[in-house]
Simulated scan of single mutants.
Amino acid sequence: MRHAFVTGAGSGIGRAIALALASDGMRVTLAGRRAGPLEAVAGEIAAAGGDSLVIGGFDVTDPKAVEAGVSKSLAWGGDVGVLVNCAGEAPSAPFEKTGLDLWNRVIGINLTGMFLVTQALLPSIRRTGSGRIVNVASTAGLTGYAYVSAYCASKHGVIGLTRALALELARTDVTVNAVCPGFTDTPLLDGAVDTITDKTGRSRDEARASLARANPQGRLVTPDEVASTVMWLVAEGSTAITGQAIPVAGGEVMGG
């Protein structure tokens, strides 16, 4: 049985990915800062006959917390064959009002945290054969958006890290890819909705509609659609797919 490790697994995209991995027969380590949401996901997995481990207090910016969580996970489920880095946040602020604390926090969670978790798990992933690493980036890693400079910078960094590591591991059996969701119907989106309503006075429904218009299909992406893309990338038949940053955004961003 393959063992998958998912950060940010308590809600939104991370939750959808964890449920999809479990439904495919994998045992899943659910890692995140808050135990409550992770326990809820573990309950859903158990109800469907799956197996999972909850690791709360998993702060991706804290090397000691990462080391402890990884050790607990390996002792429970053996070597990890699938790593999905999904932990992240997306605060909004004009560039001139983006303080160093905010900048460092976003880079720390979205990029440095991904580095720490991947580095801690890579020896295990390499031992499994056909290892898979999938980094949840964003269309913000492929283009620019106003008022989220730290977020855009961090997600561009995620894609750069993905491509560099993919080349380092190209002659092994480990692939490294990124998925880049557009505006997705998750709790993280609520922060963007709050910002729009506060600054414009528009209703929440109007704010959500304005975000949906960025997608040429005229809608928000669903977490399950992102999870489906991840499942394709971790499949045994996807060995030739590595170093890619795949938009899941209804045509908002297209490769040149």
Rank of each mutant, 00 (worst) to 15 (best):
V148W: 00
D205W: 08
L189F: 07
D198Y: 10
A166Y: 10
T195I: 14
G201C: 00
C180F: 03
V158F: 04
Q217P: 03
P216M: 09
G144A: 15
N215E: 11
V193M: 07
K155W: 02
Q217R: 14
L142G: 03
M231E: 12
I159H: 00
H156G: 12
E206G: 07
E236K: 09
S154H: 05
T197C: 08
A166M: 08
N177A: 15
Y151S: 04
T200N: 00
T222D: 11
A146G: 12
G201T: 00
L220T: 08
P187W: 06
L165M: 15
T222S: 14
T197F: 03
A209H: 07
E236D: 12
L188K: 10
T186S: 04
D194K: 11
K155M: 07
A207E: 03
S228Q: 13
C180G: 04
G191W: 11
E236M: 05
T172F: 01
N215Y: 10
G160I: 08
V234I: 14
D198A: 15
V230D: 00
M231Y: 09
V179S: 06
A192F: 07
C180V: 10
S149N: 15
T197G: 01
R213L: 09
R204E: 14
K199I: 02
T197S: 05
A235V: 10
L211M: 15
D198N: 13
V176W: 04
L167H: 13
R204K: 15
A170K: 13
R219H: 09
L220E: 05
T175A: 12
T175G: 10
P187S: 12
A235T: 09
S149Q: 03
F183P: 06
V230Y: 02
D185M: 00
L169K: 04
S149R: 02
G157D: 07
P187R: 07
S238C: 11
E168L: 13
M231G: 09
T186R: 03
V193G: 03
L189A: 08
E225P: 07
C152R: 03
T175Y: 08
R213M: 12
G157C: 11
L188N: 14
V174Q: 04
V158N: 01
V158W: 00
S210H: 10
R171W: 06
G160N: 08
K155V: 02
T186K: 02
A166V: 10
D194S: 11
G157P: 06
D190E: 14
C152M: 05
C180I: 03
G160L: 08
G201R: 01
Q217L: 15
I241T: 15
V234G: 00
